[in-house]
Amino acid sequence: MASSAKVAQQFARQLVTLSLVDGSVSAERVGGVLAYLEKHAPANAIAVLKAYHRLIATEVAKGEAVVEHAGPVSEAELASIAAALSKHYRRTVTATARERPELIAGLRVHVGDDIYESSVAAQLAALEASV
């Protein structure tokens, strides 16, 4: 059981490497991989697909910066953040804005597992924790 899960995981990982172009996920390649899987279904197809899905989701999240904000954010600001992150991670990162009034004011950027935060809510939380 454990070993078959491991095999599926490994296979999914190989499929993910096939789906990347220049370190970012390409929809075309993913389509190709899925088409292949449909034709040649592996022994534990569901496990492989689940693992593949998870891994692709992580990869996608790495290339996407979700900018949560309270109050207006200009396109230029988003672009500058995207540019800075692209430079930092050495891969193309696109920024998408999402309204989040709990922040009171300021921004919180999610890129993959990393979070960059510069918001009033975070500062207040830090104050509460430190006193």
């Binding site: 207006p72 200009s74 510069s118």
Partner: peptide, 13 residues
């Protein structure tokens, strides 16, 4: 808020 966000964006960049 806009002003704060602008400064935050600068900070993040």
């Amino acid at each position: 808020r806009g002003r704060y966000n602008a400064s935050a964006a600068r900070e993040l960049s």
